[in-house]
Design a protein around this nucleic acid. Structure first.
Lengths: 191, 191
DNA sequence: CCGTTTGTACAGAAAAAACTGTACAGAATA
DNA sequence: TATTCTGTACAGTTTTTTCTGTACAAACGG
């Protein structure tokens, strides 16, 4: 993988710089699966992270030694996750992309997008099932045998709903930035 | 997938109950990829969730219509994530497993395990690279050309470290339970 | 309006992962 | 100790995902 760099520094210095970058890029790329992202897309992200100017698909393909098609799909995934932004430049023929450098924001956006979506789907299923089971009990209110069985499921469902409502408020705290009132961006002086 | 259930309720009632369960199980299974878990393991988890007693590998295999080998590896993944607990029962020949029903705990454990691990690896890489680049600057303190280039990378690395230190404290808040002081498990009465 | 250029859809190839059956080591039982 | 039983390692198969090259539609330039 070759990177843009003014050749105004010595080859030895360049090597040290590139090694320092490579270590971070590899580390980021490997751990990006937490975001549901492929290792190679994670690598692309890491590479973009150290780029000091927006990049085109062709440039990415060259840097990653991969096809432009892969860069297109990869960068779209990153844009969807708001980890990378499309940049507008006057009279630019090609699309340009750069990473969102505010990682606090990236973290919040990721949770808003992915976790909230999962939460909503699960909550919806839980409520629908809860409703059905409640109905079942209502319509057989004298059947204590049935009651005993269904009540166990209902209790589990209620507890699950309780958890998801909490998760919803947690994500709210991320979205609003309130979380930084509780856990400040910078550690308060210890004492 | 067949489930244990005393046949003390009518077939019609049984059907309603099973459908209510299936909906929730399918929903949970689908969204479990956020935990880096395969859909079928997610399905296994959901199935276990509605089981009212600990289960053996053979029972799981029958319920999931899958091989015991898959159950073995699947349940181990879930145990590693602390989503499922191994249960000891007097004189039981086979291993027994049941889901951890405290989802607040499950959430915290997941972040402790996965996110903290990623955090530590990345932080380590960042610090190593930071150290190397700082050295490089120190040893060429008069080279303003080099300084300009490396300083940009160092600024990015410092900001990334700042983010990870915050994430570390956030996970601390999950682990200690402090997070529930900020975002209570139950919504306070609105007003 | 015609000729380029750019990003992506799509189909096929390559790579990775999930799943299974067999075989076996270690634990439990007698 | 011998016997039975349970969980998992491993190799092979199937399924899924990733990646690429080609082809083309939309955008842009002249």
């Amino acid at each position: 993988m070759s990177m843009e760099q003014a050749n105004s520094i010595s080859a030895e210095q360049e090597l040290i710089l590139q090694n320092a970058r490579k270590r971070v890029i590899a580390s980021i790329g490997k751990n990006m699966d937490l975001y549901g992202i492929t290792q190679s897309i994670g690598h692309l992200y890491g590479m973009l992270f150290f780029q000091n100017k927006p990049m085109t698909l062709d440039e990415m393909g060259e840097a990653m030694e991969m096809s432009k098609t892969s860069m297109s799909t990869g960068v779209r995934t990153l844009v969807d996750l708001k980890m990378v932004n499309k940049v507008w430049e006057k009279g630019a023929r090609k699309d340009l992309y750069e990473v969102e450098m505010d990682w606090f924001q990236t973290f919040s956006d990721f949770f808003s997008l992915k976790w909230r979506k999962a939460l909503e789907i699960n909550l919806s299923a839980l409520r629908k099932s809860k409703s059905e089971l409640s109905h079942l009990l209502q319509q057989n209110s004298e059947d204590s045998q049935l009651h005993a069985i269904v009540q166990v499921d209902l209790a589990k469902i209620d507890e699950a709903i309780r958890y998801y409502l909490w998760l919803d408020r947690l994500i709210d705290a991320f979205e609003s930035g309130d979380i930084f009132n509780y856990v400040p961006k910078d550690a308060p002086p210890q004492g």
